[in-house]
Structures are given as C-alpha cells and as structure tokens.
Design a binder for these strands. Structure first.
Lengths: 252, 252
DNA sequence: ACGACCGTTGCAGGCAACGCAACACACCCG
DNA sequence: CGGGTGTGTTGCGTTGCCTGCAACGGTCGT
C-alpha cells in the first residue's frame, strides 16, 4: 500500500537475523544505497535500529521497549497471572499462556518449572501451530470457514513422528479438541515433551486465550500428566470467570 | 528524514498504550483519516499491527517475534546466562543483565528470585537511567564528552527521596562508580528495594554490559546485600573473561 | 426511519522520496 | 607511496508516491 513504509518494515526482519551493513540492506531490499540510508536513518531516529560503533546496524532498544509495553497491556495476561502461578505451584511444571493473532499463536506469559529440566520457550515466540496444545485450542474455536482456510494455508513440518501430518488430520484433531474442551501435545513438537492445555473463554463464550502445562517425559509420563486434567480445567475456568467478570481496562 | 515512515513508526508507541480506532490514530498523528488508514494497512500487511474483531488496532505478533529473535541474537546474553543462573542459585536473589543503546538502558535477561517477594521488572523494559545500578555502570564508562552531554540531556525524576536529584550529582556518582568498579541503587527507584551491580567488560576493556542483584529490604538489609560484593564482582569477571575469549558469532 | 459516526474508496495535485553520480574516507596491496 | 577497491555520505533533478479532499456505504443508537 505504502512503498517506503513497506520497505522500512522489510528492513527489520533482516536485522533481526543479525547485524548488517548499509550495502547488505540495500541489496536485500533491491533499492539504491542512498534510499536504504534514508530509511535506516528514520528507523534510527525512532530508536528502532541501533548503529553499532563499527557502522553496522542492529535492532534497537525501542523495539524491545514497545514489545514489553504491549505485552503488559494485554489484559488477559494480568488476570491470568496469579492463576498460572498457582497452577505452577501446585504441579511444579512449566505453565504457558498463549494468544491468537493473524496466522500465529504466541506465548504471552510463562511460569517456569521447578524441575531442573526445563522446556525451551520464550515469551513472544510464535508457537508451532500444528502440534502445540495451546494452538489447537485457539484454532479449534475459529468459525468453520476460517478454520478450513487456515488449515489448508499453513505448513505441516514433521518435527517428530507424532507431528500432525496434514490439513485433514489437523481439522479432525481440532474437532476433537473443540468437543472435549481440552487438548494435548504428546511428543508432537519434541519427542520427549508432553503438554496438556485448556481454553480461556471471554464474555461471549469465545476462546480468547489458552493455557498449558508442559513436562518432559523423564519427569512425568504422559498418563501422569493427564491426571492433572481436572486441575488444568479448573484453572482455565477460574481465569475465564475473572476475565468475563471485570471488563475494565478499556481505552478512555 | 522520511515522512511516511516517520509517521508509521509514530503509530506503534500509540498502540502500545492500548488498542485504538482509526480516528484516534489519525487525530493523534495529525493527519487525515485516509492517510492513517493507508499507514495502518501497510503495518497490518507486515504483521506489525493486528486488527481486532471490533475494528480497532493493536500491536501485532510480528513485533513480538522480532523482539524475541533479536534478544536471542544479542551474544553477550548467551555467554552470561549460565553465570547469572549460578549467581541466582548462590544468593537466591533476582539477577539482571542490561545493555546500553542510544539514550536507553534495557534489561536483556533476568533470573527470578526464589523469594516470594519479587522485584517488578521485565526483559526489554527500559531501566530508569538516573538511579539503577546497571545504568550507572554502563554510563560511567562513556567517554567524558558523551557522558556530560547525556547527563544534561536526560531528566531526573524523583522516584524517592534517595533518587539522584540532578546532572551534577549524577556525574559525581558516575565518577565514583567508575573508580570503584561497582555500583549500588539503595532505594533510589523504589524505597524498599536495593541493588548491587558490577560491569561486564569486552575485549577492549570497555564496559559492554552490566549485571545486578536486587533484593527487597524486608528480605535482606542493605548491609547484607553489600556482603555479596565479592561474589558479584567474581561473576562479572567470569562473564567478561568468557566473552573476551571466544569472539565467535560474527555474521558471515 | 432517521441521523450520527466510523471506515472506506477514487481522484488530482504537489511534494517527498527515489536513483543517479560525484564525493569523502579507510583500508589493502602492489 | 600511490593507485585501487570497498565502504558510507551528500546534492540534485525528476517522477511517481503519498497525501488530503469529498463523496460513498456501512452499522450502530435513539
């Protein structure tokens, strides 16, 4: 829609991969060096990119600040926080909270396991759509048409032998998840890790977020994890109730 | 430098504060609605802005993904990680790692306290420049001219009675910090919280990062925290050594 | 049913952003 | 020591992108 803005935004993913010089950026964008320079300057003035002492460019502090600020303003998160902590306290496992936006599902909060062996994840990181329990929960609640379209649009990487293989299998899985009201990921992303998740519902009954507990097989076998189901469902229900109740925090 | 990009970037901080409608954005930017619409559209196509079902705009998933990716690529962080964890394990307190960019200092990593009362902070969040121990450490190492300029450019909010009051006091404090090789924040940001920090030095001897231990007064009094100084210095030294040694991770 | 409000869509003019080319600078190698 | 190659930077003319306007089509309330 807007050429210069489009180009400027295209620079950011480039720099996210690592620092780059002016020439690299210009080549990658397919524009003249002077153009790239002007774009980088504007980004720099805004604090979105940072100029290394050696002249190369990196992503700037502003980006982190923005992401941090926005994440704090995601209201579900605040409501959920204490419940997640309690679930973590009761089970000892890693607890995640995730939201759905566009074609991505992202973790917006996390309480780490007490056990030494932890799952690798990070707030803000996109979740593997086709296998993660939280992703299934969020996508299962989409209206029929959108769900089908999305299922056929996305890719199905084979992380492990238990990963969801294709769109058909994924849609069947989503139907199951929607019906039973909870979801699992039994070694679908990493062979040795199991997850169990439940949906958080908003005022209209729609799924607005999802939470999950994750544990390595070496700590708890799959059957053991499933025994936590009542507890997980109870937590999700409690958050839903809290969230539906107080609807403050609207922009004035 | 580049008008449209500048305006587009200006939208992001607006949305970070909370969701906003098209009209709000246009007013705030001082442009026509149609202009704002086009900018928002480009941001949306890039995934930086997300359209709520109710038509309002929020920051998008892409931004979080970028921030997460960039933070992981900050090489000091990887080197420091195990040392921070060890320091946390030994002391039980919250440990932070911070970097300096432009006029900001940001936390790039954190290991939470084992105690129930935790300090409020978040990765990516800008640090109060005038009081935080890590900020003093990073700014104290700037070349004389830059340091003076910055000291006079920034503001001096009175968070508490112990906050640094003005540029003169701040510069004196920085001299002291540089000389002694460590820094404190004794209730300068929040009355009840004390911090103790030390610098991480790169190959050239310049300060490239800073770490700190933070504890509420109710858990450990200031004197008790200061007893940890040898341990904190040792940790910072170890990270410096590791970091100076292996200088890999350069972009090919 | 009506009005008020918000988001959206062509259109035409003006200026901002583009590419070009020349410059400044550091570095390497003969 | 000097030419050559690789940076990043600046000034300038032109074009085409972006802008603001005004009119249209929704969706609420009342």
């Amino acid at each position: 829609m807007s050429q210069s803005v489009e180009r400027a935004l295209g620079i950011l993913p480039l720099l996210a991969k690592g620092p780059a010089g002016l020439g690299d950026v210009a080549d990658e964008l397919g524009v003249h060096k002077s153009t790239a320079l002007r774009l980088l300057r504007t980004l720099n003035e805004g604090g979105f990119v940072y100029r290394c002492p050696d002249g190369r460019y990196r992503l700037g502090a502003r980006l982190f600040a923005l992401a941090a600020e926005a994440i704090e303003n995601l209201d579900v998160r605040e409501v959920a926080r204490p419940h997640l902590a309690e679930l973590n306290h009761a089970t000892g496992h890693t607890v995640h909270l995730a939201l759905h936006q566009d074609d991505e599902v992202v973790y917006v909060d996390k309480v780490d396991s007490r056990y030494p062996v932890r799952m690798y994840s990070r707030i803000g990181r996109p979740v593997p759509l086709t296998v993660a329990a939280v992703a299934k929960l969020l996508l299962a609640d989409l209206p029929e048409g959108e769900r089908r379209a999305l299922a056929h649009r996305i890719e199905y990487p084979r992380y492990t032998a238990r990963s969801t293989p294709d769109a058909e299998a994924f849609l069947r899985e989503l139907d199951l998840v929607r019906e039973q009201g909870w979801a699992t990921d039994l070694g679908g992303h990493e062979e040795s890790i199991n997850c169990l998740g439940a949906p958080v519902r908003g005022p209209g009954g729609r799924v607005v977020a999802a939470l999950s507990v994750s544990a390595p097989r070496v700590v708890v076998p799959a059957e053991g994890l499933l025994e936590l189901l009542p507890q997980v469902l109870r937590t999700a229900g409690a958050i839903s109730q809290d969230y539906s109740g107080v609807q403050e925090k609207e922009t004035a």
